[in-house]
Design a binder for these strands. Structure first.
Lengths: 333, 333
DNA sequence: GGCGCTACCGTTAGCGCTATCGGTAGTCGC
DNA sequence: GCGACTACCGATAGCGCTAACGGTAGCGCC
C-alpha cells in the first residue's frame, strides 16, 4: 500500500465535502448521524489515518502533554507517569515521554523538542535547568509544571515534596533511635539534585544536633542493587564502626540488605539502613526497610490536573503544591 | 511572554528573507556563515522555538520514531528503549514512547495516534495485534518493526527471540537437573503473549519427555516481588511436594527467593527456581538465580538500526532477525 | 408571506513553515 | 569578453487539514 489517502479522498468516496468529512471523523457537531456513519464506515474500510500534523497546524491545538524525566530505569518515574496517565485518561490529552539521562543539556534539547510541537502542557521533573531551558519554559505559551521538588524557585506551577525536609526528618529519626555514627551513600550524585537536597537536609539536621556525618560516598553511577551492595561493602571496610547508613534510593538500601544477607550482618543491630522513595521493590522483602514515600503517583496526578484545569479556560494562578513526604521506619532501624 | 514569535519575525529582525532564516536555523546549505550566525544569534536572543508542526507539514518529514510498549514498570522495556536511544542518538531521529498496559485495544489507539503523526518509523512490541492495528501497520508508509518475539507472523520487519524455544530450553535444563515435580507461575497471563509462549514451549518439552506440569498459576495481575512471594507461598501450600518452579519473570523469581529467605527454605534443595529476562534486579543478590537473557538492549538497537537503514533510502527487504536467548542456570537449580 | 429558528453542509482562507525554482553577484579559465 | 560555474538569497506555491462564516432547507409561528 501507499496510495496516501487524504481527507479529500474520503470526502469524495462518501460524496460529501471535505469539511463534512472532517467533522464526521473528528466527531464535531453539525453532521447528521447518517452522514457521520457513512463517512466513518468508509474511513474504516479504506484504513484512513488522519494527518494530525495538518490538523494541528490548522486548529492550533495539539492534544499532547510533554513529560520530561531523567530516567525510566528505576520505577520512580514510571510511577509518576502512571499518575499522569490516570489523570489524563478521561481527557483527550495524551502524555509524551522524554528522557534526559540526568543531563541538563540533554534536558534542554528535549524541552526544546517538546515545545517545538506546541503541546497542551509540559511537565518537567526538577527545578534545576539550563538558562536556555528556563527561558523556554518561561516563554512557553502552554502551562508548565515542575514536579518532584519544591525546594527552589519554580518557573511556573510546581508539585512536589521538600527533599531538604525529607532528609532532615530522616536524620532526626536516626538520632532519636540513638544512632550516632552515620553514613550517607548517594548515586548520580552531582546530577541528582533531589538526592543532593536530601543529603544537605540530612547533614544540616545532624549538625544542628552536634553530630557530624561519619562517612559518605557520592557515587556518579546509577542506582542498582549491585551497586548498593558494593558501596556498602566498601564503606563498611573503610568505616567499620558505622552504625547506620542513609541511602539516596531504596534500590541502594536493598543492595545493602543483600550485602547483610550475604555477609551475615544483622539489621539493624550490626547495621541500620534507610532508603528513599518507598519503591515497590521494598514490598515482599522479608524485612521492611526504612524509607520515605515521596507520593510519586499523586505528584503525577496533581501535575496533570493543573494542565487539565488550564485546558478548560481557567488560567489558574500559579499553583504551588507541596505534599508532605511520609517517613516509615520499618524494621531496619 | 506570549508574543508568539514566528519565523517571519526572526527574518525581519535579521534583515533577511523568511527562507534564508529558515535555512539558517535548520542548518541547511546555501547560507553564508555570517548570515547564519546573525540569524542564530537573534533567534537565541528572542527565544524563538520553531514550530515543527508547520515544518513537518511542509517538508513531509518527521524525525520521530514511535515506540509502543506494554509497560514501563519492570525494567524490561526501559532497557529496550535504551538500545533504541543508543542506536538513534547519532541520527536526527528521536524516540517517542507509547504505553499500552498490555491491552490490545489501547495498543490500537496508541498505534493510530502514533501513525497519525507520520513518524519516520514505528517499533511495536509483540506480534499480536487487533485487526485494525494490523491493517494500519501493514498500510503505514513508514518502516515498522515488531520486536521481542519471533514466534508468529510479523507484519513487517521483526527482531526478537523465540519464547517458545526459551521455555523449551528451560524445561530441558530442569529435566536434565533431575527435577520432575515442576510448577509454572505466570503473570499478566492472558495478555502477555510472550509469557504464554514460554509456558507453552515449557510444557511441550516436558510432555515430550513424559512429564506433566505438576501445578501452575496464571495470575492476571502484574509481576512484583510481593506477588512472586505470595504466589509461591500459595502454590507450595497447594502442592507441597513441588521441586521446582519456573516463573514468567525474574521479578517473580526474586519474590520466590524472598519467600524462601523468610521461611527458611533452601534453594535449590527444598525448592529450585528460575525466572526470565536476566533483569538488573538479579545482580547483587546473594545467590545467582536461573534465568534467560532475552537480549533486550540488542533488540532495541537492531530495531532502530532497521529504521535508520530505511532512512538512508535503501528500502531494505523485510528483515527478520532472530536472536538466540541465553540461558544461565545460576545457583538456584 | 415573513420572520425566526434549528439542522446540516459547503466555500473561503488560512495555520507556519519548506521545496522548488529562479535570480543576482562574483569568480575562474581561456 | 564570454561562457560556465559556484555561492548565496528570495518569491512563489503549496503541505493537509480546520475555523469561520455563509448558505440552504425545513419547520413553526404569527
Amino acid at each position: 500500500m501507499g496510495k496516501k489517502l487524504l481527507l479529500k479522498d474520503i470526502a469524495q468516496l462518501a460524496g460529501v465535502s471535505e469539511m463534512t468529512a472532517s467533522r464526521a471523523i473528528r466527531g464535531a457537531p453539525d453532521v447528521s448521524v447518517a452522514t457521520k456513519r457513512k463517512v466513518e464506515e468508509i474511513a474504516r474500510q479504506v484504513g484512513y489515518v488522519p494527518n494530525r500534523i495538518a490538523g494541528a497546524l490548522a486548529s492550533k491545538k495539539v492534544n499532547l502533554v510533554g513529560v520530561v524525566v531523567p530516567s525510566l530505569s528505576s520505577s520512580v518515574f514510571p510511577e509518576v507517569l502512571s499518575g499522569i496517565s490516570a489523570a489524563l485518561a478521561p481527557s483527550p490529552l495524551k502524555p509524551v515521554i522524554g528522557v534526559t539521562g540526568y543531563d541538563l543539556h540533554e534536558e534542554e534539547e528535549v524541552i526544546r523538542e517538546m515545545l517545538s510541537w506546541r503541546p497542551s502542557g509540559l511537565v518537567v521533573a526538577g527545578l534545576e535547568h539550563t538558562d536556555s531551558a528556563l527561558r523556554m519554559l518561561a516563554n512557553s505559551d502552554c502551562p508548565v509544571v515542575e514536579i518532584m521538588d519544591t525546594d527552589g524557585d519554580p518557573v511556573a506551577h510546581c508539585v512536589g515534596i521538600s527533599h531538604l525536609q525529607a532528609g532532615r526528618e530522616m536524620a532526626l529519626l536516626l538520632l532519636e533511635r540513638g544512632y550516632r555514627r552515620i553514613g550517607f551513600v548517594g548515586t548520580k550524585m552531582p546530577q541528582d539534585f533531589r538526592a543532593e537536597k536530601r543529603r544537605r537536609g540530612f547533614i544540616d539536621a545532624l549538625t544542628e544536633q552536634g553530630i557530624t556525618l561519619h562517612d559518605q560516598e557520592l557515587y556518579a553511577g546509577a542506582s542498582s542493587i549491585e551497586n548498593g551492595r558494593f558501596l556498602t561493602d566498601q564503606m563498611l571496610a573503610r568505616s567499620p564502626d558505622l552504625e547506620c547508613i542513609y541511602y539516596s534510593s531504596d534500590v541502594m538500601s536493598v543492595g545493602a540488605y543483600m550485602h547483610c544477607l550475604a555477609t551475615g550482618l544483622r539489621i539493624p543491630q550490626d547495621l541500620a539502613i534507610a532508603g528513599f522513595n518507598n519503591l515497590d521493590l521494598l514490598q515482599g522483602l522479608p524485612m521492611k526497610l526504612a524509607t520515605t514515600d515521596a507520593h510519586r503517583f499523586e505528584i503525577g496526578q496533581r501535575a496533570a490536573g493543573i494542565i487539565l484545569s488550564g485546558e478548560t479556560g481557567e488560567i489558574a494562578a500559579r499553583q504551588m503544591i507541596k505534599l508532605d513526604s511520609a517517613l516509615s521506619a520499618g524494621q531496619s532501624l
